[in-house]
Amino acid sequence: MPLATTRRAGLVDQVIEQVRAAVAAGEWPVGTRIPPEGELAVTLGVGRNTVREAVRALAHAGLLEVRQGDGTFVRATSEISGAIRRLAGPELREVLQVRRLLEAEGARLAATHRTAEDLAELDEAMAACEQAEQAADLAAFVRADLAFHQLVLRCAHNGVLAELYRGLTEVVHASVATTVAGGRCESHTGLLAAIRAGEAAAAAAEAEDFLDSLLREHATAGPRGAGATTP
């Protein structure tokens, strides 16, 4: 068992990282069942609720699969491969279409309503994306890119819109991972510049152009696999 007892704050994140590392190292191969919550809790020196929350997060990311009454199984060797297995073809196109609607409006409102504090957080989020890309760490880039998009929606200061987007976290994560795995580590410097300048139309256009380019790449999938054109 390659796990060590956790000792500091952020216990859930530490458990996530240790489980992720064990899977990546092949300690728990794809298709195998990981130890039950109680055993993991004892090994890691944390409460069962902490383990349960970490497992839930990794299941949402596509790394694990929880089978009621049977246990938790390794579904993929990484969150990116798990996301790709979960979302492809027509489903990916549909998610991109919904993202286009929400993110374009979110960007437009963010350019109008963002605060100085919002801009500082956006700068930090952008820096995290750039660092992950420079390190060629695709998993870290996916997490950073998702965080950036979520932050843009929060900067719109529309609670309903932000909540709608938050509810799509799992499929948005999967769509980002799928496009990144295909070689699309897109920079959002233009979007951030438009939000900073308060240019609502330009910010919306930046969000639309990026997602339109992704939709064009997947246009051949179309609804239920039929040919289709980009909206």
Rank of each mutant, 00 (worst) to 15 (best):
M1N: 13
P2F: 11
L3T: 13
T5I: 14
A9N: 11
A9I: 08
A9K: 13
G10H: 13
L11D: 00
V15L: 08
V15A: 07
V15E: 06
I16F: 13
I16D: 06
R20W: 12
A21G: 05
A22G: 10
A22L: 09
V23I: 15
A25C: 01
A25D: 09
A25E: 12
G26M: 09
G31M: 13
T32K: 12
I34W: 04
E37R: 14
E37S: 11
A41P: 02
T43E: 14
V46T: 07
N49W: 15
T50H: 08
E53V: 08
R56W: 15
A59E: 11
H60V: 12
H60K: 15
L63S: 06
L63C: 05
R67S: 07
Q68K: 12
Q68V: 08
G69C: 05
G69E: 02
G71I: 06
V74G: 02
V74F: 00
V74W: 01
R75E: 08
A76F: 13
A76P: 00
T77E: 14
R86Q: 10
G89F: 14
P90G: 10
E91A: 13
L92R: 11
R93Q: 10
R93P: 02
L96N: 04
Q97H: 15
R99N: 06
R99Y: 14
R100G: 01
R100E: 07
L102C: 05
E103Q: 12
A104R: 10
A104T: 10
E105L: 13
E105R: 15
A107E: 02
R108M: 06
A111F: 02
T112D: 04
T115Y: 12
L119M: 15
A120T: 14
E121I: 10
D123I: 08
C129I: 00
C129L: 02
C129G: 01
A132D: 03
A132L: 07
E133D: 05
A135N: 09
A135Q: 13
A136E: 12
D137W: 09
D137R: 06
A140P: 00
A140N: 02
V142G: 00
V142A: 09
V142D: 03
A144C: 08
D145E: 11
A147T: 03
H149A: 12
L151E: 07
V152G: 00
L153N: 01
L153Y: 00
A156L: 03
A156S: 10
H157L: 09
G159R: 12
L164Y: 09
L164H: 04
R166N: 04
G167Y: 12
G167F: 12
L168G: 01
T169W: 14
V171K: 09
V171N: 05
V172M: 07
V172W: 06
A177W: 04
T179C: 08
A181Y: 09
G182S: 09
C185Q: 10
E186C: 03
S187M: 03
H188R: 15
G190Y: 01
G190P: 00
L191F: 02
A194M: 04
R196G: 00
G198L: 10
A201L: 11
A201I: 05
A201C: 07
A202P: 05
A203S: 05
A204W: 04
A205S: 13
A207T: 01
A207I: 03
D212G: 06
S213L: 13
S213R: 15
L214R: 11
L215R: 15
H218P: 02
H218K: 10
A219Y: 06
P223D: 04
R224N: 11
G225V: 08
A226H: 14
A226L: 12
G227S: 14
G227T: 13
P231Q: 07
